[in-house]
Write a protein that binds this DNA or RNA. Structure first.
Lengths: 184, 184
DNA sequence: CTGAGGTAGTCAACTAGTTGAATAGGTGCC
DNA sequence: GGCACCTATTCAACTAGTTGACTACCTCAG
């Protein structure tokens, strides 16, 4: 039941329709969870039945109506309860790691390309996170921000995303260096 | 079909029974994939039916017999093919990130504890990876190793695991610092 | 000689996540 | 005026992953 809480947490950033949530999850501020639209719509239905969120139809001109959901008090309580529950260790599932482990029987060139693609992707994400970071700080120092800001949740997950992408970038560079050393 | 390939890749490290594989996945050299024993036994059966691996019963004294699996030529070919396939972006699913994002409605103390637990876990993993790293290098410099070593797959995934855990550690430290700044 | 814990595996039932397509109106481009 | 792409949602079918219990035999400590 973790997607459930990821959805609730995402709604802390403001009410959203399924479609909007899907984009939030996709471009996700600090890539804190991933989910397909179908999963989200299903989860939203269940959450509404459980009265942890409440939907209302918003009529729009020039585009289809949408159902916008907001957290209920029960939803907030559920989120609070979730933060006190036991945390399970994160599950790492990265195709690239598997492929690299299979390098000895694998295709070196294909792996170089895959690795470069990862590098680019992570650099792009990192750049985005860095911009968001600047926006959040808004001129203040890290410490000022940490002390003063009203809400700190987004900031801390953003730091997580940045650390993760930085790790990806330096790892990808190291791997490419090694592959070049041995290639050719 | 990614667990499938993770199992095949794990068998590159040497033949193993389901039970042994489970441990390999658990203490997994560079936490490159995670899976429960039940998943493994199921997958091994399917892989054997597909003739990508071959099992044989090894009779043991003082303990139950076991079925040890080894890669077939077809299995190696399948792994090779996998390395040329398109890589999908890694899926991040970490409860802690969700909980931190919900910090504003969550329980600050519980989160501090969860964060400390993560820090310890990551430090322990990191220490283990560092030992493995030393063992692999065996006195050689990184560059010597990268040039000379026969097999480089394990090394590269190990680097990935290390980068990931280092990111975790520095992130956890930063979060705890911030939480202390604002707490009390 | 009992019970905890390791080795080795199986079965059943469940929950979570993915894929692909269908519907239906809107905008903007060339 | 036709085609591609965006908003917004739903349905159906599938694959992957988790949980918990159960069998069986072994070793070792107290």
């Amino acid at each position: 039941m973790a997607l459930r809480h990821a959805v609730l947490a995402a709604l802390l950033d403001g009410d959203a329709s399924g479609y909007e949530l899907a984009k939030r999850f996709d471009v996700s501020v600090a890539n804190f969870w991933s989910a397909t639209p179908q999963q989200l719509y299903r989860e939203l239905e269940q959450l509404e039945r459980a009265e942890l969120i409440q939907g209302r139809v918003v009529e729009q001109e020039r585009r289809p109506n949408k159902r916008v959901f907001s957290l209920t008090a029960a939803g907030r309580a559920e989120l609070h309860a979730f933060t006190t529950e036991q945390t399970r260790p994160p599950a790492m599932r990265d195709d690239l790691l598997v492929k690299l482990r299979a390098l000895d029987v694998g295709d070196r060139e294909a792996l170089c390309e895959a690795m470069s693609a990862r590098l680019e992707l992570s650099e792009a994400k990192l750049a985005r996170y860095d911009r968001l970071h600047e926006d959040l700080l808004d001129g203040r120092s890290e410490e000022e921000y940490a002390r003063e800001a009203e809400s700190i949740g987004v900031y801390l997950t953003l730091m997580g995303g940045r650390a993760y992408e930085q790790a990806n970038v330096s790892w990808a560079r190291a791997v490419l260096r090694v592959l070049e050393l041995r290639g050719s």
